[in-house]
């Protein structure tokens, strides 16, 4: 029994160390926000919150559907599917409310570069991309008070 538990523990530990993707929330450097609650993040990407507290409109920067960050956004953060997500955003617009501003870009580097010109932008990127020149000067936002490298970080 003890041997089985040890093997299981080793397997879990190995899989966490080797294969667990982690994602960071980045915003424009001028954005005063430093930390977000998970439900605030869900409200933004879900189209419920369309304006930052300090004024600018929220501009969602997303990747194409086959990218890891988009799959994480759908499957883990919002617990929805791509078609359901599209329908939800269309419903907001159809109701006559202010539509969600959404930009789909084809790489993390392009997304990060684009964000420099959009003060209200927010994006979900793989933490591995944070060291790239394009993403390194964006501001990484704490989620529930934690940064991607810290224990208990929720976006992984």
């Amino acid at each position: 029994m003890g041997r089985i538990l040890l093997t299981l523990g080793l397997l879990i530990g190995f899989s966490r160390a080797a294969g667990v993707a982690s994602f960071a929330v980045v915003v424009h450097p001028s954005n005063p926000i430093t930390s977000l609650r998970l439900r605030d993040l869900q409200a933004m990407f879900g189209g419920v919150t369309k304006q930052w507290e300090h004024g600018p409109k929220v501009v969602l920067i997303e990747r194409q559907p086959e990218s890891p960050s988009f799959r994480f956004l759908m499957g883990r953060l919002l617990n929805t599917s791509a078609s359901e997500y599209k329908r939800n955003l269309a419903s907001i617009e159809f109701k006559g409310e202010t539509p969600v501003t959404l930009k789909v870009l084809n790489s993390e580097a392009t997304a990060c570069k684009y964000m420099f010109y959009v003060p209200g932008a927010i994006a979900l990127v793989e933490t591995g991309s944070l060291s790239t020149p394009e993403c390194s000067q964006l501001k990484v936002v704490r989620i529930e008070g934690k940064l991607p490298a810290e224990d208990g970080y929720r976006l992984r």
Binding site: P29, K103, F116, P119
Partner: peptide, 14 residues
């Protein structure tokens, strides 16, 4: 080049 050295000032949103 601007991206690699220093982030530009915020521009009006699209």
């Amino acid at each position: 080049t601007a991206v690699a050295t220093e982030p530009p000032q915020p521009e009006p949103e699209p």
